[in-house]
Amino acid sequence: MSTPPALVDRLKEKAGLVSAVVASVASMDEAIAYVADVCANKEACQILASGCDAPLSDTAEALCETKQQKIVCAPDLPEEDVAKLTALCQERGIAVITKGMRGRLGGIDIAVTMAAAGIAETGTVVVRSTDEEVRLATMIAETHIALLPESAIVADSYDFEPTLVSWMGEPNYTAFITGPSRTADIERVLALGVHGPLEMHILILEGK
C-alpha cells in the first residue's frame, strides 16, 4: 500500500518549519548523488564558518586540527551503496568512511544514515542508533542527511509505538531527530548547530 501523498506533504511541511531541508528522490542512486553534491558544494571546511574564526582556548583549537580532508561517514548504508558513494566522492577528493568516528571527534562534514521511520506530525525522522558509529556520526557531522523510505512515514508518534516497544526488548539506543541541533539559551535567539549538526536533510526515497 502506498503512502498517502498528504502524509508525505505533511512531513515535508513540518520538517521545513524546523529548518530541515526535505527533498524527494526517485532512487537510491539519486540519493547518493545528492549526498556527494552536498558535500562537494559545501564550504571547503564548514567548521571554519561554524566557529573556527572564533578565538578559542588552546585545548579546543587542538581538537579541530585533527581534520584534514572532507569526510562523509555512512555507517549503516548497504554495502553496494557505500561502494557507489565512495566512487562518486573519490572523484571529488572526498573521503568516505563507515566507522572510526571516535577518531574524528573534531568534526566531519556529512553523516548519511538510514531513517527507520518518519513521523509526519512533527517532521521527525527515527534513527536506530544502537551502533555507536551511527550515534556519533549523526552528532559529530556538520550536516546530517537521513534517507527515509516513503513507506516508513507514519502520521504520528503513536503509530510508531509498537515498533519502538519491540526494539526496547533488548539494549537499544533510538533517536527521534527533528531538524538540526538548536538552542535559544542566549536571549532566546535561535542558533543552529550547538553540539550537533548545523544542517539536517531528509531525502524521501519514493516508492521505497
Partner: peptide, 21 residues
C-alpha cells in the same frame, strides 16, 4: 514549555548499549 512543536532530539536508551571504550 516554549511553544515548540517538538524538541530536536528525543533519545530512548534501553540497557547497556555498545560503547567502544
Amino acid at each position: 514549555a516554549t511553544g515548540q512543536n517538538l524538541t530536536s532530539y528525543v533519545t530512548w536508551i534501553t540497557g547497556a548499549v555498545p560503547c567502544a571504550v
